[in-house]
Design a protein around this nucleic acid. Structure first.
Lengths: 343, 343
DNA sequence: TTGTAAGCGTTATCAT
DNA sequence: ATGATAACGCTTACAA
């Protein structure tokens, strides 16, 4: 079974290749009968146009790329779903590009641009320590979504990029503020040890302590080793177990993701203590599980669907050379649930 | 900032295009100095080869495609992670193709084959009601992984496809057997309303009831509407709430995914009842949350990592024309946890 | 309405 | 070791 080409279809139908091309691409100037015959033949012989050849020739490809830092993270679930739907509604294709922990998202994006002639790119996750000079080499418009702190300024006539995200530092600060307001003086903090997201969260944590006149104690900070799959329940569980065993004094645990918080809750429960009576637990990011866990978990609900929606809209605005808001910072919502209480 | 081509690089360096090509592709027959100079120029001008042109010319592309039914499902998380790593270790690239609920995975695979010249395909999810004649049109080897019931027989000299999965029907049957052995006579069943996976689970459920001499009652069956995002906690929660309100008599709920089971647990808890004292709950698929939920949830642990690993291995065996086991059915493990008890 | 032919940016086969 | 040049499969002027 060999790959059949447009030439052979043309021969089969006794027409020229351009006629076949016209049939495929719904050009108007073609005899309906000829077109039908060609389409039938295509179906019969299972001809599929070679997209490499198409892309080589075409200037546009109607493809949007989503570049995701660690796609296996359950956090992206809904967002992916929304992006997929929105892009399809606009009759575009979506290609997903995973970025492993040790890969550079900008380099991958640069590749994609050439390779797939994508019309636009959405970055999901990462984008904290990117090389701006490399990023500027991107010709197509892009949106940094649900992560990152900033985008490069525009230099050309049209805006080329935008940021749609939450402000991690401020959000985390507000959570710690809340926990302080509950009367906690010693808040254990489970964060990522990297210099990107983890650093932002930590800054928020520190700022809040300072504001609330509390002392910062390095012993309360648990830094998850950067490496693959940080945001797992298991990780939250294990480090909380160690924390509990260590004998360090604290009354509350704040984890920067809900999955980590779930692990923390279970670790507390398994140690024979109760949440929130013995230890309070708070998470962040607002995944479903925080709402349905028992006890339900106090969290910062990030507007993930909104971010996804707005990212797509903004990207298409960029593509269509409309004016856009360069930096959209969407606020999260602190949701008090059963896992925390006033002391 | 225009896209620079190989021709311009050649001109810039005062060499022919083939020399540049040799430099890029690490061909041996090139003067190291020339090569260095070319590489420097490439770096300076940020030249990225056009992959469409490359793929057009090349016969191989070193790309593996993973075609996933509903990528937003958290179930795929680890598997995606493993696949990504394994494929990278073998110096191949991975492209992810989402299949929406209303799309046909085989058609998309056919497209991918042409478009990206992929060397092999792994199907994740779906593949229950595929059109075998279309599937046979795939030229590259493929593995149906973690889903599906069967693969087409081989016709050529070399095997072209394989199946690596669990037997849903048998697994579900064993879970219901277990629940019966606990003394449950009326087991509510939350399943997917589709004719694929949902049907397999239901068959297992029915078979078990029959075997255990219990009556099948349609009122106990909750069929989730096919449509997007079936396996959400929220879905499990909502339908359990309705079930509880309906007044139908039952002592146990079995849901075909752990996320659904989590929702069921919370619904029971919110109704003022306890798990497992008032209602037992069992899930299936073995996601982390089942282990860490409170109460932890009895489930069927599918060997997801094993399936992913074995799928990659098998795919590369197919690619390298080695003999493979056509149908690898890996068994799940029933894990008794806190959410069920003997009556 | 249709066919012919010139690219698109590569790689590979020849010569040199 | 290097440079022309012919594909690769398609789209699109341009001609007919």
């Amino acid at each position: 079974m060999e790959q059949i080409t447009i030439k052979e279809v043309a021969k089969l139908c006794g027409v020229g290749v351009s006629t076949v091309s016209r049939a495929i691409n719904n050009h108007p100037d073609i005899n309906p009968e000829t077109k039908q015959k060609i389409l039938d033949t295509i179906r019969e012989y299972n001809y599929v146009p070679n997209n490499s050849a198409r892309n080589l020739k075409r200037t546009d490809s109607n493809t949007i790329a989503v570049v995701i830092k660690e796609i296996s993270n359950s956090y992206w679930g809904v967002m992916l779903h929304v992006l997929e739907r929105e892009v399809r509604d606009r009759k575009y294709c979506l290609v997903l590009q995973n970025v492993a922990d040790d890969e550079d998202e900008v380099e991958l994006a640069l590749q994609l641009e050439k390779e797939k002639k994508v019309k636009g790119i959405i970055f999901l996750g990462g984008m904290y320590n990117y090389d701006e000079s490399r990023l500027r080499m991107l010709i197509v418009p892009y949106v940094i979504s649900g992560s990152g702190k900033t985008v490069p300024e525009d230099t050309g006539t049209y805006p080329k990029s935008a940021l749609v995200t939450t402000d991690t530092e401020i959000e985390s600060q507000s959570m710690v503020d809340y926990l302080c307001s509950c009367g906690h003086k010693r808040i254990a903090f489970i964060t990522s040890g990297d210099e990107g997201l983890g650093r932002c969260h930590l800054n928020g944590y520190k700022r809040s302590l300072e504001k609330n006149g509390l002392e910062y104690d390095e012993k309360l900070i648990i830094r998850l080793k950067p490496g693959k799959r940080i945001y797992t329940i298991e990780n939250g569980y294990n480090c909380t177990c160690e924390l509990l065993k260590s004998g360090v004094d604290f009354s509350c645990i704040y984890a920067i993701s809900d999955t980590l918080a779930v692990g923390a809750c279970r670790a507390v429960i398994d140690s024979g203590k109760r949440v929130p009576e013995d230890y309070c637990v708070a998470g962040a990011d607002g995944q479903d599980i925080a709402e349905y866990y028992h006890p339900s978990i106090t969290t910062l609900k990030y507007p993930r669907v909104e971010i996804a929606l707005q990212s797509v809209r903004t990207l298409f605005d960029l593509i269509n050379r409309k004016k856009v808001v360069k930096r959209q910072i969407l606020g999260g919502t602190l949701i008090e649930r059963e896992s925390t209480r006033k002391l």
